[in-house]
Amino acid sequence: MASEEASRSPPRSRQEPGRRAPRQDKYSVLLPTYNERENLPLIVWLLVKSFSQSGIDYEIIIIDDGSPDGTRDVAEQLEKIYGSNKILLRPREKKLGLGTAYIHGLKYATGNYIIIMDADLSHHPKFIPEFIRKQKEGNFDIVSGTRYKGNGGVYGWDLKRKIISRGANFITQILLRPGASDLTGSFRLYRKEVLQKLIEKCVSKGYVFQMEMIIRARQLNYTIGEVPISFVDRVYGESKLGGNEIVSFLKGLLTLFATT
């Protein structure tokens, strides 16, 4: 396959003074999945397309939490199609949460940069080359996708959802002054060691976990770059924003407000 060729021979020789070993950057995508048999092949296809078009060295680590819908079987087929050096299956027995999924995936990641994103097609891989460009431009520790800036935006949200999202974002900005415009999004690029450090420090779950990552990053003086993204709400499957989500978001927000 063409992408394999690209990874063996670096597309451009990049010599950086001050770096000991001028090795090529490699990007590991962590894809936690639960019941994503419809979306997984599509997201992987889009990822492979995006990476091989821009000649980026990559691997995709699929962390499936024992989905009953056969996501794992689909993942195994993808591994056969694209090769086990590109698609790494690192499943877990049962649903154990996002934070631990990242820890689990990180153990196997061989890239020096990590990309985290949702596997439900709401995050489009076409933005990854922009993330990488942004990271190099400012030598950032983290590059975060943002729905709230520039050409960023959403698709498939009704007025109520938009009001909740903008309102929650406004309150968060006022209370926490985080230095990034999209705290609850989860499409981000991290230096590997930065992500490792941040996960160690973070205690919350769900939406708040993504928020806490940025808040801790600010505390540890990591730099954050931002890239506007379009967020296309789940094509297949149910989008989740219930009363419970809002209550736990507010709880998490107040906890961070009082403790950081």
């Binding site: 489009h124 050409n151 960023g152 935006g153 959403v154 698709y155 949200w157 007025l159 938009k162 009001i163 999202s165 903008r166 379009s230 967020f231 296309v232």
Partner: peptide, 10 residues
């Protein structure tokens, strides 16, 4: 809210 982009093209 009023200026939130709707990404129809995307």
């Amino acid at each position: 809210v009023a200026t939130f982009h709707d990404c129809e093209d995307a």
